[in-house]
């Protein structure tokens, strides 16, 4: 039996727009099935953040107003702690609004700019309420495997030289709908627009996070393979659903073009 892991859920009540907590449930359950003990801690706005024995930090998305509160809260001590921990190899997963806050800033359409914590070299802009949101099923390529999820974001994210895209979009918009990039990565910190929830249907990525965390804490990681038939069937079904969407869009477009 391997020793335990500590998962910190940052703003679980404030930033849980659509099923983001499924990611934490997934990490916990995948540990449990392998006999790895895990502990989940929650930190909300105004509460002290202590990252000393934390192995994985998770943060979900929120509406503009909630995201604003989180941004203000992180501007204080939390941001600095988080930057230092990431430099030290902390595994981080942030979804959607959480991803945006890991960047330098998010400029919404009609509200004041939100400062991010600059863990990732990315910036996010909203081009105004007249531009349509990026909504739909996504399939992306990550290290020879696919990642699936559902995206729904108004902000467009652009990467600077320090960040590399997490995955390459096959179907969907991804970061900005232009450069085919989806999400961003710096050391062991990851941001993505995919929810669904993200990890349950991408068990290979969930295990990647667990592996990084175990290696950092124990110097080595041996993850027993789990029976992921159901997870991968769901993964496949999501790919098929995204392809179906694209087929219909193409048909509609070709019909319009006559």
């Amino acid at each position: 039996m391997m020793g335990g892991l500590v998962i910190l859920h940052l703003y679980p009540r404030l930033m849980n727009l659509y099923g983001d907590r499924g990611n934490v449930l997934c990490l916990v359950e995948r540990c449990r099935r392998r006999g790895i003990a895990s502990e989940v801690r929650a930190v909300e706005v105004g509460q002290r953040l202590d990252l000393t024995d934390v192995d994985i930090l998770f943060m979900g998305g929120g509406q503009d107003k909630e995201q604003q509160l989180a941004a203000q809260d992180m501007e204080g001590e939390k941001g600095g702690l988080l930057r230092a921990a990431v430099e030290d190899g902390l595994a981080v997963l942030a979804i959607c609004g959480g991803y945006q806050l890991l960047g330098h800033y998010y400029r919404p359409a009609s509200r004041p700019e939100m400062k991010g914590v600059s863990v990732l070299d990315v910036t996010t802009l909203h081009k105004g309420s007249q531009t349509s949101r990026c909504i739909g099923n996504v399939v992306a390529q990550w290290e020879g495997k696919t990642l699936v999820g559902f995206e729904n974001h108004g902000g467009l994210t652009y990467l600077g030289p320090e960040a590399k895209p997490l995955a390459r979009v096959v179907i969907g918009y991804g970061n900005n709908g232009q450069d085919k990039g989806e999400g961003a990565q710096y050391l062991n910190a990851f941001g993505t627009y995919l929810h669904g929830s993200f990890l349950p249907k991408n068990p290979h990525f969930a295990d990647h996070l667990l592996r990084l965390a175990l290696e950092r804490r124990y110097g080595h990681a041996s993850l027993e393979p789990l029976d992921d038939d159901l997870e991968m069937t769901a993964h496949g079904a999501a790919v098929a659903r995204a392809r179906g969407d694209r087929r219909w869009t193409n048909r509609a477009l070709s019909w319009l073009k006559g």
Binding site: L25, E29, R32, R33, K201, L230, A234, A237
Partner: peptide, 21 residues
């Protein structure tokens, strides 16, 4: 999206066994 519901249940209550898809 039957499979999505199935994994949701798998991660919710592991003891009850897999639902029939």
């Amino acid at each position: 999206r039957a499979e999505d519901m199935a994994i949701r249940l798998k991660y919710a209550v592991p003891e009850i066994g897999l639902p029939r898809v």
